[in-house]
C-alpha cells in the first residue's frame, strides 16, 4: 500500500478542493435568485424581436450603490437592415 503512495499521489485532494470551491459558489447562488440572469434573458428576448445582434456582443452590468443602483446594458448592433424591415422586403 505504501509503495503506491511513494509512486503516485492520489487525485482525491484535487477532487475535494474543486468541490469546495464549486459548492461555495452554488450555495451562494441558490440563496439569492439570479436577478441579473433573468433581466438579461428578458431584455435580449425583447430586443431580438426588433433587431438582430450577436449575443456574444452583449454586456449587462449592475452596480449596487448605497442609495441607488445602476443597470447598464451594452449591446453591439451591426449596421445592417433591422429585422422588422427585412420582413417587409
Amino acid at each position: 500500500m505504501n509503495l503506491f503512495k511513494l509512486f503516485r499521489r492520489g487525485t482525491a485532494p484535487i477532487a475535494r478542493e474543486r468541490l469546495q470551491i464549486l459548492l461555495a459558489h452554488e450555495r451562494n447562488a441558490r440563496s439569492q435568485p439570479d436577478l441579473l440572469g433573468v433581466l438579461r434573458e428578458e431584455i435580449l428576448a425583447l430586443i431580438s424581436r426588433h433587431v438582430s445582434f450577436n449575443p456574444d456582443k452583449v454586456q449587462i452590468k449592475m452596480d449596487r450603490g448605497k442609495s441607488v443602483s445602476t443597470l447598464a446594458v451594452d449591446i453591439e448592433i451591426p449596421n445592417t437592415v433591422p429585422l422588422m424591415y427585412q420582413k417587409a422586403i
Binding site: G10, P13, R16
Partner: peptide, 18 residues
C-alpha cells in the same frame, strides 16, 4: 477502502466536511 487508502477517492471525512 482500498481506493481511499491510495488517495484515489474522497475520504469519509472529506464528504462529511463538504
Amino acid at each position: 477502502p482500498w481506493r481511499a487508502a491510495r488517495g484515489e477517492i474522497l475520504t469519509i471525512d472529506d464528504v462529511l466536511e463538504i
